[in-house]
Simulated scan of single mutants.
Amino acid sequence: MNDTTIIQRGTRVHCILAHAGEGVVTAVREDPNARNTYVIGLPGLERVRSTGQHLYDVVFLNGHFSQGVPETIFRGVQWHILERLAEEEEIARLVAAHLQLRAEDEAAAERRRFAFEVERDQLKADPANKHLTQGDDQSSGLLAAKNIRAVLRRAFPGERFSVQKRSWGTVSIQWEDGPTEEQVRGLVDRFRSGSFDGMQDQYVSEKTPWNAVFGGTKYLNLTRFHSPALITRAIAEVMAQLGDIGVGVSTAEDYAAGKLWDIEVPGAHGLESLIRMRASRLAG
């Protein structure tokens, strides 16, 4: 039906896309970018035939509107032409509903823009942030990395952190023992300017007023290492709990070299896993 039906103002359609659904064609016009088809004939008698491609405007029952849908897409698998034309009264009502929805969306966008600017200006003027550098780098990670160092120095004096700007707007934070990952993430997560949406299989930018003032990073990688001293304590406690299981004296160097990962412990996790879990508990 999609290939032969004449489409006109009032034609009812259905689109499977999430924003669409059932709708009504409000306008049909020639596609100015459509190419002509050349039909080869005898020399001097070549003919030119127009493809007859059109563009379609559609207002949907949910208030959304699609303008200039090419005919090649309109007659594709995402669209279906329905029975019975819509009356002009219904078209006018749907168009009015769309205009109302657009006005509400524009008003909401303006409120969000105003709130964004107010919060951004407050952050700039707040003396509590005077130890941070202001700028307009909202996603590369350069400014964010600089300010993350300042945040961590103030929050955890005496602790050593490695904060590095990596490729693709990534900032990597590494440290040994000390604060937990949750404590660090609670301070630095505000520098993220988006996240990966697994449902859409794409990165979604979510720049905030904080990003607009103090910088943003697309990805934050946090890695907390355990020191040899802590691993040594964990090994001693695990071995004391296990007793004699036929394993020689293990050291932090053995753990770091991966020599313990394949040592099985009867009725429990492997030895390396037990040591890692005990070290995490000791670290707090």
Rank of each mutant, 00 (worst) to 15 (best):
1 M>G: 12
3 D>S: 13
4 T>S: 12
6 I>F: 07
7 I>K: 05
8 Q>N: 11
8 Q>V: 14
9 R>A: 14
11 T>P: 03
17 L>Y: 08
19 H>Y: 11
20 A>R: 11
21 G>K: 12
22 E>M: 11
27 A>E: 15
30 E>W: 07
31 D>L: 03
34 A>F: 09
34 A>I: 08
37 T>P: 00
40 I>P: 02
40 I>K: 08
41 G>W: 03
42 L>M: 07
43 P>Y: 04
44 G>Q: 08
45 L>N: 03
48 V>L: 12
50 S>F: 10
51 T>E: 10
53 Q>C: 06
57 D>H: 09
58 V>W: 02
59 V>P: 04
62 N>V: 08
66 S>P: 01
70 P>Q: 00
72 T>P: 05
73 I>Y: 12
73 I>E: 15
76 G>M: 07
78 Q>D: 15
78 Q>H: 13
80 H>I: 07
85 L>I: 10
86 A>N: 10
88 E>W: 08
91 I>A: 09
93 R>D: 13
94 L>I: 06
104 E>W: 05
104 E>N: 13
105 D>L: 13
106 E>F: 01
107 A>I: 05
111 R>F: 00
116 F>P: 02
116 F>H: 09
119 E>Q: 13
121 D>A: 14
121 D>K: 10
122 Q>C: 09
126 D>I: 04
126 D>L: 02
130 K>L: 05
131 H>W: 00
132 L>R: 04
133 T>H: 11
134 Q>V: 09
135 G>F: 03
141 G>I: 00
141 G>C: 06
146 K>A: 11
148 I>L: 05
154 R>A: 10
155 A>M: 00
160 R>M: 10
160 R>F: 14
169 G>R: 03
169 G>N: 03
171 V>C: 05
175 W>I: 03
176 E>N: 08
176 E>K: 08
177 D>V: 07
178 G>Q: 02
178 G>M: 02
179 P>S: 03
181 E>I: 10
182 E>A: 15
187 L>Q: 06
189 D>H: 14
190 R>K: 15
191 F>K: 02
195 S>F: 15
203 Y>K: 05
205 S>W: 14
205 S>F: 14
206 E>Y: 06
207 K>I: 14
208 T>P: 10
210 W>M: 03
213 V>A: 02
215 G>K: 08
215 G>I: 01
216 G>M: 09
217 T>F: 01
218 K>F: 01
220 L>I: 13
224 R>H: 09
225 F>K: 10
226 H>M: 12
228 P>V: 05
232 T>W: 09
232 T>Q: 13
233 R>F: 01
240 A>C: 03
244 D>N: 15
245 I>G: 09
247 V>M: 09
250 S>E: 10
258 G>S: 03
261 W>G: 10
262 D>N: 14
269 H>N: 13
271 L>C: 06
273 S>K: 14
278 R>E: 13
279 A>I: 00
279 A>D: 01
281 R>K: 12
282 L>H: 05
